[in-house]
Nucleic acid binder design. Sequence first.
DNA 1: CGTCAGGTAAAAA
DNA 2: TTTTTACCTGAC
Length: 318
Amino acid sequence: MKLNYKINLKLTQESGQTSQAPWKLIGDEYCGLSLINEIPILLKVSQNSLDYLETNYETVNNNQNINEKMICDEIAKIYDLNFDLNKFYKFLSKDEKLKPTIKFCNGLRLFLGQNNFESIISSISSANNSIIRWTKSIDTISSKWGKGYDFPSGTFYTFPIPKILSNVYEDEIAESEAYNKEMIEDCINNLKACGLGYRASYVKKSSEIFASKLNPLDIKYMKYDEAFETLIKIPGVGSKVADCILLYGYGFMEAFPSDIWIKRIISHLYFDGEDIKVEKVREFGMEKFKKYAGYTQLYLFHYARKSGLMSKLKPKNK
DNA sequence: CGTCAGGTAAAAA
DNA sequence: TTTTTACCTGAC
């Protein structure tokens, strides 16, 4: 099937958005598991031209209760295909500081998480961490405690639901005590063994909250402010992680995730290099870019990476 | 071997 | 209230 939308798939996949790990690349197709009406589907996407996507899919045991429209709708949702890029580029063009981002990020779109709980845990895991490490942790969690489905292209796993994850031991000590194991090295069925480091306790505690008193779906129906205030009460979630969850996990376009890099970029572009607080950067971005705040953050970050601005702004030998 | 990675929470000022 | 500091871990 062909989807006629402007997008750069590779750029979008590899842009390191924190709501989910990039899909598995098999040949020239990015493959990701999705549940459509509870039916497990392996979505396969590739592209030869920036003007359209080529999509295909696989089912378990040749399930027939799925049609092409459902697949296209799902792909459109995940890659935010109905967002009007040309209109956004007009917006960027009006600001001389933002204009250069277009040619570096042409076709870059949001890669929206399909599973809210996964987006939350992914973003928590990404804090003060490298992309390669948090994505590996998330993949490990899925393969250990998620549900596996066998497709012709291989086995893919869902991300475990809060109740399951909340019952996983935090580290090898908790696990060894529970099972009275002699060899502590044998304890690999715990969160810390997934390479989460000190974030393991955040994942454990937040899973317990989402397993008991807060449904991840509730966040979706809140206004931005309420959703933000709710999220920052979760262990391991500060303002940056909360905004990543809201933007990349739920599609709150007005969020402006502000981290050290966005701070450096905004400071360089709009405040003459002055050392401004991250909180102020966040307010500035939301106020100035409004409904385009999220996309602008995404574009600024990639522009900085690709244009060499990032290495220029990086403080040397401290 | 130190340093660093798209921060957060807890301690200290 | 605002500013430091410790923190898992594996790649470089």
